[in-house]
């Protein structure tokens, strides 16, 4: 489903060049469950943003379902994000003036879906995430765990194939953190490809495949063969 080929992303800071991603080769199958760990500044978020089409590579290629994404302009990339990729962030990124339900509804609205079609989809997600009785609450009236559940609801309402979570439990206590991870794993069981960036060893070990990053490179991959297939295109 996903294939990175010799992908680099570097940032120019003054006259210094930081290689946040340094010749990455990576293949991810549909339905996989990966965790990405590594020290701060090792390039985990940069990798996630790259996979989410939020960022563009400095060199190399990113194939999404055999389609090269680097020739695409922002417009089709936005459409790909909308239709196929869901994001969950550490700091939730909810819009404070919208209610929980409206936050989840936002992707459907941006996709131009008529209200009649939105309602059943929304109702399903709200029930699925046990948020129905919080529908009319503003984000600031919700607990951290509830906010992250709203963010997850927003990420999956468009039924994406790929769910990218950047430290989704980073702001949560261990109980609600575990609840969130369990929710993400349930979604993965239903077929969604899941990639979780985390600092938490316990959470990282739950994944079927673990990546460890150091200095913009994948230092270890529990499915070692993924790195070996770099030469065939």
């Amino acid at each position: 489903m996903i294939e990175l080929q010799q992908l680099c992303r570097s940032f120019q800071i003054g006259d210094q060049c930081v290689h946040a991603l340094d010749h990455i080769d990576l293949k991810i199958e549909s339905g996989a469950y990966l965790s990405v760990m590594g020290p701060s500044g090792s390039g985990k978020s940069t990798l996630l943003n790259m996979l989410g089409l939020l960022d563009t590579p400095s060199s190399g290629e990113y194939l999404l379902n055999q389609t090269a994404t680097s020739p695409l302009s922002e417009e089709p990339r936005a459409t790909l994000r909308r239709e196929h990729i869901g994001f969950v962030f550490q700091s939730y990124h909810l819009i404070p003036r919208l209610t929980a339900r409206e936050n989840i509804e936002l992707p459907l609205i941006l996709a131009g879906m008529p209200p009649k079609q939105r309602r059943p989809l929304l109702d399903k997600v709200m029930t699925r995430l046990a948020l129905s009785d919080r529908a009319a609450h503003a984000p600031k009236q919700l607990s951290g765990g509830q906010r992250q559940r709203v963010a997850i609801g927003r990420a999956i309402v468009m039924k994406p194939q790929l769910l990218l979570a950047d430290e989704p439990t980073g702001n949560l206590d261990s109980t609600s953190g575990r609840e969130v991870i369990e929710l993400l794993e349930e979604l993965n069981d239903e077929g969604i490809t899941l990639l979780v960036v985390t600092h938490d060893q316990n959470i990282g070990e739950r994944a079927r495949r673990e990546l460890k990053m150091i200095d913009g490179r994948i230092a270890s991959d529990s499915a070692g063969n993924a790195v070996a297939t770099r030469t065939d295109v």
């Binding site: 989410g52 939020l54 922002e74 417009e75 936005a78 459409t79 790909l80 994000r81 909308r82 239709e83 990729i85 994001f87 990124h93 819009i95 936002l106 992707p107 941006l110 996709a111 927003r154 468009m158």
Partner: peptide, 10 residues
């Protein structure tokens, strides 16, 4: 940024 992440075109 969020709107863009959600696939909202420019």
């Amino acid at each position: 940024g969020l709107l863009k992440a959600l696939g909202c075109p420019a």
